[in-house]
Design a protein around this nucleic acid. Sequence first.
DNA 1: TCTTCACTCAGTGTATACAAAGACTGCGCG
DNA 2: CGCGCAGTCTTTGTATACACTGAGTGAAGA
Lengths: 222, 222
Amino acid sequence: MRASDRAYAALRADIVHWRLPPGSVLAEVEQSERLGVSRTPLREALARLTAEGLTAAQRGRGVVVTDISLHQVRELFELRATLECRAAELASERGDREVFGQLSAELTGAAGLLNDPDPSRAAYYELVSRLDAAVDAAIGNSYLAQALKGLRVHLVRVRRLSQDNPGRLLAAAQEHATIARAIAKGNARVASAATTVHLDNSLDHLLSTNPQHPLTINTHPQ
Amino acid sequence: MRASDRAYAALRADIVHWRLPPGSVLAEVEQSERLGVSRTPLREALARLTAEGLTAAQRGRGVVVTDISLHQVRELFELRATLECRAAELASERGDREVFGQLSAELTGAAGLLNDPDPSRAAYYELVSRLDAAVDAAIGNSYLAQALKGLRVHLVRVRRLSQDNPGRLLAAAQEHATIARAIAKGNARVASAATTVHLDNSLDHLLSTNPQHPLTINTHPQ
DNA sequence: TCTTCACTCAGTGTATACAAAGACTGCGCG
DNA sequence: CGCGCAGTCTTTGTATACACTGAGTGAAGA
């Protein structure tokens, strides 16, 4: 694996998991020494991150990890709703019904996963990402799939803000199950509607647990 | 201006205007000598182009200008319809009515621009891009605006395929005027519908003037 | 005491040298 | 005559040295 790929993956993970919180300045020499690569591949990694919107180049001060305000979260969810509703419709028309039937069944029984002691809910999120992957494969549109992928990077970072409690996660799992069931039935209208409802609930939950603007207060959530 | 920016702008223009047709291999030393920059900024430019999807890295043979099949054009328009319809809706709700009223009037009178002897129709396309810019500003969603921007790069490249005749351009101008008028009236439903119609007509025209798959035959349209 | 200018220095932007990996070619063997 | 292998060579990947820009700081003058 190339050094630039390693640097990119490491930095991206650090940003997404808030080990590099918004506002962190990523000095080239400092990061290249930390990651054990030279400046050239590190610059390539930073360029990729900047293209994704995870970092931004500040004239004269290097690149910094971009901030996320609640206002931006709203914009993010507005685009997300647009893309995911369309994706749900297309998946309903073009998807493999068995795949989504199976996923729907698993999601309905996701309560078991949430009783798991794992605090990171890895098993649950893995199941959800399998649904995402199934939708990507079903829509048969690489441009749309790519747009969705680009969005999800930001959404994983935002997830840290939602401070999910078991109740919300259980409800979200059922909403996901509803979406998968509609796709399995080939009902595009319902799939789109269920997606709209799910995203609205998610955003409401996120906003209610983050009363005001100051997301930067949560910079070190530990 | 940085050397990497110049290299990026030059390569991007060359690709979009088909001076570097699909399949061209962009060897680093060759291009860096041609553009008068060293390999380092050129690599950065190539990385940006690859992130945009205009080029793709081929293991061991450098980066090549990506091909565009009719199938991909269909996918492109599918995503485009999704994003632009939503953008038209949001612009109807949030846009400045005077701005779009003015644009609508100009577009209605665009027949004059099309009688212009300029074969590149620069004046016409400048007017259309002003409509795009107005929509971007009106939607008030930087993520959606960014997604639209990323799409338009590919669309400019595809434009070369559509071999627009004056009749189609005039019809397109009227369709654009209809969209602008609906936005000016604040009628989101009609704005979205008019966008759907316009994009369907555009795709139909493009497909009818490119009978079969082999877009690569048009590699050197001059 | 405030403002401004110059100096220093940290850090990015660029060039180039070196290393490594993959592709092409030519030869030999079956 | 075809297939396979090895060697060479082109091209990318990485490291590092140098240049240049911009920011911060200190002192001096008003």
